[in-house]
Design a protein around this nucleic acid. Structure first.
Length: 280
DNA sequence: AGTATCCTGGAA
DNA sequence: TTCCAGGATACT
């Protein structure tokens, strides 16, 4: 599921409900997904929640942190102790918590945070706050779009390589946070074929792509993420970006610009969607 | 650059 | 029953 807009949406929700609250207990049902000492965060207060690429970091008052990557099917859902669960609008989708896929539960002084992960690809690492940046995932992250990725940096990333442009967009070491959905849609907005080698892009195309990345990520943020599959926000509610997909998951449907049928191919091991007319 | 891999469920 | 799924990594 989750790419930059989705993880950012979760982050904003967690900030709202967790900051200033104390972790009273941690229950781990799937040891494989968790590393570090869970007792080291008991009675610590949540002071800060950050996102780096598709990763989340919860900083605690005792200089410990919880680093989380939810990968494909992870969910972080908060339920306050005073929320009447059965009446929640998301209850039908999420159901009882903890549920079958709840692998970790953080009990707080104001409720609980549940980590669900059907495919169990995600991870939660508990460690000293000053060690987070040493984790290989965070250490190797490239610049953040909408933040420290400027056009000049983007140009040098693109020009100096002869990889397919789609692989560059999705490479977290080069640019943080873009995954398959937003890579597909950004390439469509910029009218660039996903297979094009990056070094063959003109100045104009690079600029268009840079703007397209901003545009689709901002739309993703505005619509609170894409909930085609498992993504839900910190309250278990779905997002709306799936209603604005340009090409992603729209195989056989008409291109929003020219009406040509959107094609799907397997490329770089991922479903790749494009308009054969607009994206030559 | 391509493929297998960690898992499970839903769609075809 | 087979294939596919938005991630990241470790191989060839």
């Amino acid at each position: 599921m989750p790419e930059l807009p989705e993880v950012e949406t979760i982050k904003l929700g967690l900030q709202k409900y967790l900051i200033g609250h104390t972790i009273k207990d941690v229950k781990v049902n799937k040891e494989r997904l968790v590393s570090g000492d869970t007792t080291s965060i008991l009675n610590a207060k949540v002071v800060k929640i950050s996102r780096f690429g598709k990763g989340l970091v919860i900083d605690l008052s005792n200089k410990q942190s919880i680093a989380i990557h939810i990968k494909m099917t992870g969910q972080l859902i908060y339920r306050g102790s005073n929320m009447p669960v059965n009446s929640r609008p998301d209850y039908k989708k999420i159901g009882k918590l903890p549920g079958n896929f709840t692998h970790v539960t953080f009990l707080l002084d104001n409720g609980a945070l549940y980590y669900n992960d059907m495919r169990q690809f995600g991870w939660i690492k508990i460690l000293r706050s000053n060690k987070v940046k040493e984790l290989s995932f965070f250490k190797s992250l490239g610049p953040e779009p909408l933040k420290d990725l400027d056009l000049k940096t983007f140009q040098s990333i693109v020009k100096n390589r002869k990889n397919p442009i789609k692989s560059i967009l999705m490479e977290q070491k080069l640019i943080a946070g873009i995954g398959n959905i937003y890579a597909n849609d950004a390439l469509f907005v910029a009218k660039i074929n996903p297979k094009r080698l990056s070094c063959t892009l003109s100045e104009k195309e690079i600029k268009n792509l840079f703007n397209a990345i901003e545009k689709v990520l901002k739309k993703g943020l505005e619509t609170h993420g894409a909930s085609k599959n498992h993504f839900v926000n910190a309250l278990g509610e779905t997002g709306n970006y799936q209603d604005f997909f340009k090409v992603y998951a729209r195989v056989g449907k008409p291109c929003v610009d020219c009406g040509t049928k959107i094609q799907k191919i397997m490329f770089l091991g991922r479903g790749t969607f494009y308009c054969p007319n607009c994206q030559n």
